[in-house]
């Protein structure tokens, strides 16, 4: 079946609430200088909070900085500003692989 006959898109990007861009399908992931960025899995999550330590991929750090994709009501904004960031944030979870 050719791409013209197939109604399915080559790739789908899901804008995850308060999280990354989840990319499924065939895309070319390249750096600003045009070099291919190695991709080791079929579905990838791209950082959009700006804090990931493995950019362009997501490492879950958005959860430590209170990243929000929707406008934040004033009452919540104050709380979010109090959240510490990066290495100093105290993750409570204790998992070692899933």
């Amino acid at each position: 079946m050719t791409s013209e006959q197939d109604p399915r898109p080559r790739a789908v990007i899901v804008a995850c609430t308060d999280g990354p861009l989840l990319v499924r399908g065939e895309i070319d992931l390249i750096s600003a200088s045009g070099e291919a960025i190695p991709r080791t899995r079929k579905t990838v999550a791209l950082c959009r909070c700006g804090v990931s330590t493995i950019k362009p991929f997501c490492d879950g750090s958005h959860k430590l900085v209170g990243f929000r994709t929707d406008p934040v009501p004033p009452a919540d904004r104050k709380r979010d500003e109090g959240i510490v960031t990066g290495e100093e944030a105290p993750p409570d979870a204790e998992r070692s692989g899933a």
Partner: peptide, 19 residues
Amino acid sequence: WYFDEHVEADAVHEQIAGR
């Protein structure tokens, strides 16, 4: 490697698993 692999993989998996 095992731990580094999970930093990237599970940031993907948690989105799929949640929604």
